[in-house]
Amino acid sequence: MEAVMSLLVGCFFAAGVYLMLSKAIIRILIGIVLFGNAVNLLIFTAGRITREAPPVIAPDMDRLTGIAANPLPQALILTAIVISFSFFAFLLVLALRTYQELGSDNTVQMRVAEPEGDTLPPLGY
């Protein structure tokens, strides 16, 4: 199971990275979503995989016994999913506003903060 998951995680990373290397900002955003899923699966798989037994203690027990999934990566990923979503929404709105202001979705043409040209900084004191 871990081997298949590793391969799947690799595919998620490859797809995410490939999209993020694009110059079109919407592709970069989709790449970030895939990248987030890749990282979540990476953490999940690194915590080892158990099938179908959630880490919930039975009502008549005091502690979790027997085979169950690892709760720690789940707790990490749960919050990560929600944060990734907020981050994604933020980037999306940022891209939208940038597009409205600059009229371009190409990152090469976004040069407001770092304009092109050879202007030297002031040389005086």
């Binding site: 919930v56 749960l78 919050t79 929600v82």
Partner: peptide, 12 residues
């Protein structure tokens, strides 16, 4: 707190 669920999921 006792079964699958919680604040994050409920909020979503």
């Amino acid at each position: 707190h006792n079964e699958p669920g919680g604040g994050f999921i409920g909020g979503l």
